[in-house]
Structures are given as structure tokens and as C-alpha cells.
Computed example of a mutant assay.
Amino acid sequence: MHALGVALGEALRAGDLVLLTGPLGAGKTTLTRGLGEGLGVRGPVQSPTFVIARTHPSLVGGAPLVHVDAYRLAGADELDDLDLDFENSVVVAEWGAGVVETPESWLEIVIERPVGDAALEDLDPAEAPVESRTVTISGFGPRWAEGVPA
């Protein structure tokens, strides 16, 4: 997830919106850490669950990364109250589908992972096998008309 994020982050620019969808533990924040690394922003990139949105300034003169946890937001009005700089930042919104108003172009990344394997629940996390993920990246609008790099 991290390596995918780095590759994708290198292609992102100011004004890009990325909507992340997936269950708890799917790798949304790990992907966002990679995006931050690819963008060259100040870290550490952590889950914004308790602050709702966190801005990571660029260390290389590029766009800052705004990492949003839209799970607790009731809708676009509450997101608007945060006064985020969508135009000059790369905005990554976990749980953002249906909450964040989409601009002319955006990326949607859906991460699926297996859940409920009782045989793995008792394993020490350090000994548990790496779970496979299925990642679907869809680009919408003219920005992504030529496809999504990654």
C-alpha cells in the first residue's frame, strides 16, 4: 500500500482530490503515508481520526497534503466549515465518497481486504501473514482522461 502511494503521490499536484474507501485496517492511512512521501511533505502522516483534518506542508516546494477523515462528518457543509484549501493542496479524504463534493476531476481509490478469518485473529501481529488487498483506482474528469499513473 505504501509503495503504491509513493508512485501515485509523485503524479499528484495542487487541486487533486483523492477519495479513499475501505474497511478499517484496509490500508487507507498507509496508502496516504506513501502519497505524502511521493509528494515530499512533512510527516509523519497519521490517521486524522481525532482531528478530522491535518495539513502536511511540502518540503520540496510542491503542494501540501491535506489528509481528511470524513467518517464523522455529516455532509459537505461540515467539511466546508473546515475551510480547507482544495485548490492549492492535494486533498486525500478517507471515507470521503458521498461526503466530499467532487470537483471537475478526482480519483477514487477503493481498497478491499479479506475480513473475519478467525484462524488469524489470535496470532501476534508480527507473525500474522500479510493480507492481500484488491485496489481499484478510478479517475474521473479531464485531469485523468489519459488514465491514472501508478
Rank of each mutant, 00 (worst) to 15 (best):
L8T: 02
A126E: 15
G22S: 00
L107S: 06
T55I: 11
A3W: 15
G27F: 12
A76M: 01
V60S: 06
L39N: 13
A118I: 04
F86L: 08
T32I: 04
D85M: 03
G9C: 05
F140S: 11
K28W: 02
I52V: 15
F86M: 05
G9D: 09
G43Q: 08
L84K: 08
Y71Q: 10
P129R: 15
E10A: 15
S89Q: 04
G36L: 13
D117L: 03
A119L: 12
I137H: 02
V41D: 12
A74M: 09
V99N: 09
P48Y: 07
A53G: 15
V90A: 07
G147T: 00
Q46M: 15
G139N: 03
A63M: 00
L82Y: 08
L35A: 06
A53T: 11
T55V: 10
G38M: 02
S132G: 14
D122P: 10
A63E: 07
F50G: 07
V148S: 07
P129K: 13
R13V: 12
A93Q: 07
G98L: 05
E127R: 03
P114T: 08
T29F: 06
A76W: 07
D80T: 15
G22I: 05
G62I: 06
G98V: 05
E127I: 04
A126Y: 02
G141T: 14
R42A: 15
G62D: 04
G15K: 01
D117F: 08
E131T: 02
S138V: 15
D80L: 01
G38T: 12
L4S: 14
G9L: 01
R133I: 05
E112V: 00
A128C: 14
R54G: 04
D77V: 10
W144D: 06
L24H: 01
P23I: 11
T49I: 09
